[in-house]
Amino acid sequence: MRIPCPHCGPRTHEEFTYYGDATVRRPSSSSPDAVAAFYDYVYTRDNPFGLHRELWFHQGGCHEWLVVERDTRNHAIKGAVPARDVFKAGESK
C-alpha cells in the first residue's frame, strides 16, 4: 500500500503508523453528558464496508498526521490531507 503524503509525495505504508477513525471529534469535557459523550468517542466505532477516513502518522517522514481516505474493501486510497487542515476547519463536529 502506498499513501500519498501531501507533504512528501507517495510513500510506502511502512513509513506510516495507523491510528484509526478520523471522523470522531473529542467532546467537550464540561458538558453535562461528558462521560457518555467520551465513552462514545473512545469506544464506539463504525466499521464501514467501503470508504473510510482514517488517521495515519507519517512517522518515517514529515511527522505530520494525515486524514487518509481508504476503501476498506480493497485498500484503494482516494487521497490524504493534513489532519491540521481537517480539524482546524472543525468539520463534522
Binding site: C8, R11, E14, E15, Q59, G60, G61, C62
Partner: peptide, 10 residues
C-alpha cells in the same frame, strides 16, 4: 530532499 527511512531508520 527526502525525509524517509533507510533500512527502517529515519
Amino acid at each position: 530532499v527526502a525525509v524517509t527511512t533507510a533500512s527502517h531508520l529515519a
